[in-house]
Write a protein that binds this DNA or RNA. Structure first.
Lengths: 230, 230
DNA sequence: AGGGCAAATTCCTATATAGGACTTGTTGAC
DNA sequence: GTCAACAAGTCCTATATAGGAATTTGCCCT
């Protein structure tokens, strides 16, 4: 492991552990260099790398600060239902099952086959009708830390919940969108006959750029206006 | 302008002008440093910055090379129609108008209001039915360089055409997807009554990260399976 | 011809150093 | 009290240098 990698890693660890929190100022370049026993140049390289990935932000003459919400509006798309005037329609999330499943799939490929995987299955009701089917996959190791968490928290934005409750913030999200046939079980859950629908897949990564969650969202033909917004 | 910026810019210019082509090896760090009258460290910083943006690739012990197709499969989504077996359906592109328009819109905001803008309007026929309406906006300055180009070239992938014919390759693409009501004129062109549809907007940037094109694609409810693939 | 070794070339990591640019707080003149 | 000048602290750009790591090349030997 290079010194550069060690410095990056240590700083990430401080943020992960909560020793450094959003908005906090990091020690100056020279202080960090002294602390890590490396040259200032190495610290600079580490800081600009972390700044580039959005974890911290550097301000000329002021200092280096831990960024606010890492994942910004520009990074990820959300599903929304809107009425004709463009207003968001109210939605209601119901958790239908939380189970450990042995099945293989894109989630196991992504999260790693060695550990067990938990699926949080949810149905989202928009304007009085069940419109969205959501599967959120987590590794068992991370899921165990959810024991103390209120069950109602699972009916919120799970990515945000992971960051706030478990201090497992998401650094970035890969996202795919498809518009294709829906599989049988999903059709049944949404109360649809064989029809094409809308499928969005997301892969979330931790601050260390390690796999964190796999999220799949499906929707049938819309009775309202489905909008994908940033 | 900093030396670093000058070095980056000069290298980009060499690629843009065709002096360096895909797969070519750049001069070594020390040669570049001597050529630009800067230190090796500055050249290294410039090269790793360009490598990070995907323009070049560095190979330990071998050299630095101009990357192949800059915009990879991972960077941009494409629209495809597929049959039940997942095979791509053949499509046919017809150019319906190429005009200078004074209207304001997202394109003028992006491409800059100072210059005139050209709209290349196209209809895409999939499996015998007009399914997609496409608007491709360019600045007038860039468009003029298209004079010598065969008109049939406008019925191909315009981003690729810009790169090959005009040596204006696209470095990156911003992309938004919406599923919403379609405006009247689009409905008429696709032969639809008032219906929600599928809207994809793209903004292309040059090697210098300057605005290059604005592209908007609309599709109605699909009679085949519409897939957005990378 | 082919194998093995050394040298040259290339990029990579790291250090030490110098001065510039931006921000903030203090001091002093008015 | 207000404003200008100053100083200290911070990040930013750039240089020169050293050695290490990966690859290619040339040469010698068999």
């Amino acid at each position: 492991m290079t010194k550069l990698a060690r410095v990056c890693d240590s700083i990430v660890a401080r943020i992960e552990s909560g020793a450094l929190r959003e908005g906090d100022r990091l020690p100056s370049e020279s202080q960090l260099a002294a602390g890590f026993r490396v040259s200032v140049g190495t610290v600079q390289k580490a800081l600009s790398r972390l700044a580039h990935s959005g974890l911290i932000s550097r301000e000329h003459g002021r200092g280096t600060f831990v960024s606010g919400s890492r994942i910004g509006a520009a990074d990820v798309n959300y599903l929304r239902f809107r009425d004709a005037e463009g207003r968001d329609l109210p939605h209601y999330i119901r958790v239908t099952s939380v189970r450990r499943l042995m099945r293989k799939g894109p989630w196991s490929e992504f999260l790693g086959a060695q550990a067990g995987h938990i699926r949080i299955e949810r149905l989202i009701n928009v304007g009085g009708k069940v419109e969205i089917y959501s599967e959120f996959w987590l590794r068992e190791t991370e899921f165990r830390r959810l024991n103390g968490v209120d069950h109602g928290a699972l009916a919120k934005n799970l990515r945000v919940m992971l960051g706030q409750q478990l201090s497992l913030p998401t650094l970035r999200v890969d996202q795919w969108i498809r518009f294709d046939r829906l599989p049988q079980p999903v059709l049944r859950k949404l109360g649809l006959r064989d029809q094409p629908g809308f499928i969005m897949e997301m892969r979330g990564y931790t601050l260390r750029d390690q796999p964190l969650f796999y999220h799949k969202v499906s929707a049938g033909p819309f009775s309202h206006n489905l909008v994908i917004v940033r």
